[in-house]
Amino acid sequence: MNRRRLLSGTALVLFTASSAPSRAGTIAGALPWAPGAAAPPRPVVPGPWHFFTPAEGRTVEAIVDRIIPPDPDGPGARDAGCAVFIDRQLAGPFGRAEGLYDHGPFVTGTKQQGPQSRLDPATQYRGALRAIDAYSAQHHDGRPFVDLAAADQDAVIGAIEDGSLPIEDVVTKDFWTMLLKNTRQGFFADPVYGGNRDMAAWKWIGFPGARYDYSDWIDRHNEPYPHAPIGIAEAPLWRPAASK
């Protein structure tokens, strides 16, 4: 009994589903490590829309710029790149609801049970943008959202917020929650994702970004932090002088 076999023996093949190489691994004797296994984020490259049509892109720029409007003190969401951020997210795993639970039946439940849409975010955005223009046209002499005055745009956004703007197969309030979150994410996320351009939102509130070491600051109380933000893939100091 001084050396019991605990969990051992020869594994037994019971069922074969595929002959593809397995990603399941066995680790023993040493920590597994391979060079180049890290996966830094891929920087968003500015350019044409990946998901939105040009008309949709203009509408989203107009919407986000009312949600976070420009003012003399800080950037608006359009100039910060929030629409580009949302476009790239909708073109990727987020837009496809990748990794989320997608088995039916789809039943609308209580607020506490959370969103139950069968439509992925990309499809919800497409339908919502169509509905927003239809609602704008219906209430404002046939004009699409981008052609409305700011106050009228705010009224349309208010109708998304209070759920009175109908979107086919979508719970409008759930879409609003997603739109508001995505806009703020684009505004405040690391600029590597296409929003928060030039770290403008971070500079505006005084957030130093990805600095990662405040050892000298933990017990300096009530003092202004003096350093500009840095991002994962950029810092003002890293830029060539000519482009400053």
Partner: peptide, 29 residues
């Protein structure tokens, strides 16, 4: 002195490949 096998549904995780300090401070990700 026992032989032990541990099973994990997810992947092996380590600092160098999953959250190195060069990109760990990423609120969005």
């Amino acid at each position: 002195g026992l032989d032990v096998i541990a099973f994990e549904r997810g992947p092996w995780r380590d600092t160098a490949q999953d959250f190195p300090p060069t990109y760990a401070p990423d609120e969005y990700r």
